[in-house]
Design a binder for these strands. Structure first.
Lengths: 101, 101
DNA sequence: CGTGTAAGGAATTCTGACACG
DNA sequence: CGTGTAAGGAATTCTGACACG
């Protein structure tokens, strides 16, 4: 969708500044499969603005004591819900055009 | 306008990769007043996606042999043209609403 | 489980300068 | 004028590990 939002160009230091999370935490959440930065040619992690949004959500949930395993599940559910919503919308549109045909 | 496009978060190394320009060139164009990266707390330059677009334009013009001084003037003219266009539009809208009043 | 830290190495960034032209 | 490079220092990033709990 947004060409800039998903482009992985931000180093971990800047992400740390922007999110207030330690680099240790950011790397750990990656280890737990909550986000997937790219790597530059020399191996440094590069993040997108979307990743930063994900980290903000993680920070909120961790503050509430939600374990990373649960957060991961939540993310999967969110994706499913989005998927379901999209499919329902598509279904309704299809139905609509079928009626008008 | 775009909240992500203008956020200064990209280090010079990544900008160099993305634009194909050397770090030396990127710093020099800044010295010539063609773009204005921010500085992190430790003094490293941080660029936005807008800056990258500006650098692409500079690269194109430099390839055509346009000196940086001219490029700077072109940028000023572009800004003026944008400004004039905006003002004309605003003027027309004002005229429009005056007529309808 | 989630996060801090010390460790050592490799790569990055910065500035001011010299070079060529 | 525009760009390359060597120079030296300071700050960044990486991984694997130990610690606490």
């Amino acid at each position: 969708m947004s060409s800039y939002k998903d482009k992985k160009v931000i180093t971990i230091g800047v992400v740390s500044e922007l999110t207030g999370l330690s680099e240790r935490q950011i790397r750990y959440y990656e280890e737990r499969g909550l986000l997937f930065p790219e790597r530059s040619s020399r191996g440094t992690r590069k993040y997108s603005f979307s990743d930063i949004e994900i980290l903000m959500k993680i920070a909120d949930k961790r503050e509430d004591g939600v374990p990373t395993r649960e957060i991961k599940k939540d993310f999967l559910s969110e994706r499913d819900r989005t998927k379901i919503r999209d499919e329902m919308l598509r279904g309704q549109l299809n139905a609509h055009f079928h009626l008008r045909k």
